[in-house]
Structure formats: C-alpha cells, structure tokens
Simulated assay, not measured.
Amino acid sequence: MRAVSTPPTAPDATPARRDAEATKAAILKSARYLLARHAHADITLKDVAERAGVSPPLILKYFGNKDALFARVMSFEADARALLDAPPHELGRHMVRHVLESQRERGADPLLRIAFAPLHGAQGDILRANFRTQVTEHLAARLPGPDAGLRAELAVGTLLGLGVMYGIARGPHLRESAIEDIVNRYAPVVQAQLTP
C-alpha cells in the first residue's frame, strides 16, 4: 500500500502577527513614557528602543521615522475612544475607572501626556490641538444641555487631577486604595459636569 502524502500546510501567521502587534504596542508605550518625562527634541529612537527592548531599526520598520512615531504618540484618538466608551449616564464612573486601571495595570494614563505639552515646543502645540479635538470636543459633542464645552473641559480637568495625583505625585493613600472605592468617591464629581 502506497503512503498518501499530504501537501505541507502553510505556517500559521497568527503568532508572528501577535508578536508584531505586541512589539508596536511596546514601542508606543515606551515613546509615550518618554514623551511624558522629556522634551521631544531630547528623545532619540535609541532611547525609545532601549525602553521598549527592541532595536532602533525595528522602530523604523514599523513607524518609518521619529516624526511618524511621535505623530502616533501625540494622537489621542484611540485613548479617547476607550475613555468615552460608555453611555452618558455611566460615563463618569467609566472614565474614572479607565484612568485608574490604565495607570495601575498598564502604567500609562490615557490623558496625562497633555500635562507635558509645554516641554515640547512646536510639537506641544500639536499635542494640545489633538487633545482639544480628540478628547474635549469629542466629549462635548456627546453631552446634552447647555455649556457642553465648558462642562467637558471641567470633567477632563478633574480626571487630569486624578491622574496627576495617582501617577506623578504618587499619593500613597490613593495608590493603596481599591479602584472601586476611588470610583465610588470620585466618579460623582466627574459625572456632575457631564449631567446638565
């Protein structure tokens, strides 16, 4: 009896894709971390690569150049989508929880890099413009009632204060508290601005 040979199967491309996505995410996280602590002009691709655990040529492969990488880092679109992903009556709780979980579990705040815009010269202007259009104006467009723009800015400002106290000042009582306890205390303050 003759053995039947089966054609070789193509290797599964999924693990490589996952590795590529994980590597891109690590590079972006590294660049965000550095951008929140150093002036844009002082950050090199080598700095980003070392923090991400990759080589500088890999950054060029995925992002093209430093300007393209930082254009992605200076965008708040993905962060705003996740931050605002709740119905209006639950948005305060969701936003507070999202800021805290982002810092505690991923070591990144979805909004906090805006606080460092003055360090970045002309790049800081881009960061501020992106923040206004992608975060506060997007939130304002979702709010019913009068003074939506003002209320959106006040709500986001309140979240930034929480992010600063948690991530930069590293308030020990805040950091030792359960996320749900902080959400229960802080979310009503944010929601008060979101509800007309």
Score class of each variant (00 low, 15 high):
residue 125 D to R: 14
residue 163 G to P: 02
residue 178 A to K: 12
residue 88 P to R: 02
residue 77 E to I: 14
residue 175 R to D: 03
residue 157 G to Y: 05
residue 177 S to F: 08
residue 104 R to V: 08
residue 95 M to C: 02
residue 110 P to W: 05
residue 164 V to S: 04
residue 150 L to T: 05
residue 82 A to H: 15
residue 136 T to F: 01
residue 116 F to A: 11
residue 154 L to Q: 00
residue 139 L to Q: 07
residue 94 H to D: 10
residue 79 D to M: 10
residue 140 A to N: 06
residue 168 I to G: 00
residue 136 T to H: 00
residue 163 G to I: 02
residue 88 P to V: 05
residue 80 A to D: 09
residue 166 Y to T: 03
residue 134 Q to N: 15
residue 129 A to M: 15
residue 95 M to T: 01
residue 108 A to D: 11
residue 127 L to F: 13
residue 137 E to V: 11
residue 172 P to K: 02
residue 80 A to V: 07
residue 155 A to P: 00
residue 102 S to G: 15
residue 100 L to G: 08
residue 149 G to S: 13
residue 136 T to D: 01
residue 130 N to V: 12
residue 137 E to T: 11
residue 88 P to A: 04
residue 142 R to V: 06
residue 106 R to M: 11
residue 146 P to G: 00
residue 109 D to S: 10
residue 122 A to I: 12
residue 93 R to A: 15
residue 174 L to Y: 04
residue 89 H to Y: 10
residue 126 I to W: 12
residue 94 H to M: 07
residue 161 G to P: 01
residue 82 A to C: 13
residue 131 F to I: 15
residue 112 L to K: 02
residue 74 M to T: 14
residue 91 L to I: 03
residue 99 V to A: 04
residue 97 R to F: 10
residue 70 F to N: 04
residue 146 P to N: 01
residue 147 D to P: 01
residue 115 A to T: 12
residue 116 F to I: 10
residue 95 M to D: 02
residue 151 R to F: 00
residue 87 P to A: 10
residue 88 P to M: 03
residue 77 E to C: 11
residue 86 A to L: 03
residue 134 Q to R: 14
residue 65 N to S: 13
residue 64 G to D: 01
residue 67 D to L: 13
residue 63 F to L: 07
residue 100 L to K: 05
residue 91 L to A: 02
residue 70 F to W: 12
residue 109 D to Y: 06
residue 110 P to C: 06
residue 118 P to F: 11
residue 65 N to L: 13
residue 99 V to H: 03
residue 135 V to F: 05
residue 96 V to N: 00
residue 131 F to G: 10
residue 102 S to K: 05
residue 156 V to C: 03
residue 68 A to W: 12
residue 86 A to M: 04
residue 162 L to Q: 00
residue 155 A to C: 01
residue 130 N to K: 13
residue 140 A to E: 05
residue 163 G to L: 04
residue 161 G to Y: 04
residue 129 A to Q: 15
residue 87 P to D: 09
residue 68 A to S: 10
residue 173 H to V: 11
residue 162 L to T: 00
residue 164 V to E: 07
residue 84 L to F: 08
residue 81 R to I: 14
residue 81 R to F: 14
residue 163 G to T: 05
residue 131 F to E: 13
residue 103 Q to R: 01
residue 83 L to Y: 05
residue 110 P to A: 07
residue 90 E to D: 09
residue 133 T to K: 13
residue 140 A to S: 05
residue 145 G to F: 04
residue 84 L to K: 03
residue 141 A to H: 15
residue 134 Q to A: 14
residue 122 A to K: 12
residue 85 D to I: 06
residue 149 G to A: 13
residue 82 A to N: 14
residue 99 V to S: 03
residue 110 P to Y: 07
residue 142 R to S: 08
residue 153 E to Y: 04
residue 164 V to P: 00
residue 157 G to L: 02
residue 135 V to A: 04
residue 133 T to F: 14
residue 117 A to C: 08
residue 152 A to F: 03
residue 69 L to F: 15
residue 125 D to I: 13
residue 146 P to I: 00
residue 90 E to T: 07
residue 104 R to G: 06
residue 167 G to D: 05
residue 158 T to G: 07
residue 135 V to E: 03
residue 109 D to Q: 06
residue 160 L to D: 01
residue 175 R to G: 01
residue 166 Y to F: 06
residue 161 G to V: 04
residue 94 H to V: 06
residue 67 D to G: 09
residue 118 P to H: 08
residue 92 G to Q: 02
residue 123 Q to K: 12
residue 166 Y to I: 01
residue 72 R to M: 14
residue 90 E to Y: 06
residue 68 A to V: 09
residue 156 V to R: 01
residue 89 H to L: 13
residue 66 K to A: 06
residue 82 A to T: 15
